[in-house]
Design a protein around this nucleic acid. Sequence first.
DNA 1: TCATCCTTGTTAATATATTGTCAATAAATT
DNA 2: AATTTATTGACAATATATTAACAAGGATGA
Lengths: 211, 211
Amino acid sequence: MGNRDKKVSMAVVRRLPRYYRYLGELLKHDITRISSKELSQRMGVTASQIRQDLNCFGGFGQQGYGYSVEYLYKEIGNILGLYNGYTTIIIGAGNLGRALANHSNFEKRGFKLAGIFDISDDLIGEEVRNIEIMHMDKLDEFVKLHRVDIAVLAIPKQGVSEVAQRLANLGVKGLWNFSYTDLNIESDVNIENVHLSDSLMTLSYQITQKN
Amino acid sequence: MGNRDKKVSMAVVRRLPRYYRYLGELLKHDITRISSKELSQRMGVTASQIRQDLNCFGGFGQQGYGYSVEYLYKEIGNILGLYNGYTTIIIGAGNLGRALANHSNFEKRGFKLAGIFDISDDLIGEEVRNIEIMHMDKLDEFVKLHRVDIAVLAIPKQGVSEVAQRLANLGVKGLWNFSYTDLNIESDVNIENVHLSDSLMTLSYQITQKN
DNA sequence: TCATCCTTGTTAATATATTGTCAATAAATT
DNA sequence: AATTTATTGACAATATATTAACAAGGATGA
């Protein structure tokens, strides 16, 4: 049983998608089994870390054999909730909102895009990926009707706090926040921030220090 | 002097942009001084961590007073290389490439967007933000002429490895990689991956475990 | 000017994360 | 069927990161 009961650290959780990705590649190449040692070499991590990470969720492997790629792939997908068919909406039909709507991995990972919202009258009625852009006035009704799980926040930081609170109140479970601000919401909604500028600045730091 | 000489850990580096952001907000509100204690409360971290992080780079504060917001802001900006006027290009003029080109923070943080490249003939000649989209054939010449520092990779993963190696060979210092693959380049080029799907899957995990 | 208060920079203590080791055991080989 | 090899899961050892504690010294106010 080991450490399967303990709370799993975010350090481990953030590595799961990467395992999932590599296992998916192996599957594509018809590789049916993999040892932690070989996977570690492909991924550039230690075999020990892989085994320890996986054991947070269960003993998926077999001594002397390794791991079944397909089984492990599905198990991790399951842990990540990728087969739950979460319904998503995008708030903001600007460049970023559209880019995310067209992001192929989005649907490939099992997320269903149900609606896109904006406040600009020019955009209302336009279609992105066969999904009509709706006015924010319709948001509440839509979220309740379609039982939206995840909302993608692709709007400027000025309005984001109010919208985020509104979504949380409507029962949305997760906010994927691209606006350049930290959300502080009165709710137990889960928030995942993607601060693109932060990432670029980190790259800038590395260049600066090296040269 | 303390730990100023030791190699700074990425955990610390990744927090710098956030400090920079909060200090910028303080500046906007005409707050001229701040203690680690008050900043820690605003940011939701420990004061100890702030002081320890900053001391990796120097003693910017003063006992009994705290930190000068403007001074600290500029110092961190400097550490991050934001005043070096790095020249950037975007590879891929699809939705994501355009979104990033139009990203206002991009220029606000001191990065100069010099060119956008694509392979699709339909797009060549079109303009995004007054910048003409050029064909990849012109890439080598352009990078050399304009001394490009950073390239943003906003193309599908199929072609990204080859392009990345090409850019590295041309002397580009940093790659900001949005393609859903890990780059393995023969060069000392710095790579910052932004795997959007990974982030969404992490959010999915959190929702799944909680409910 | 002097005493008190405040806040840093630094070091020590604690907590967390990663890596190494090995007994247990299944698979592969002889 | 017996032996060797491979590999896990668990745990111990190590390394890294975070937090707490505090002496040193400037700021503040009487």
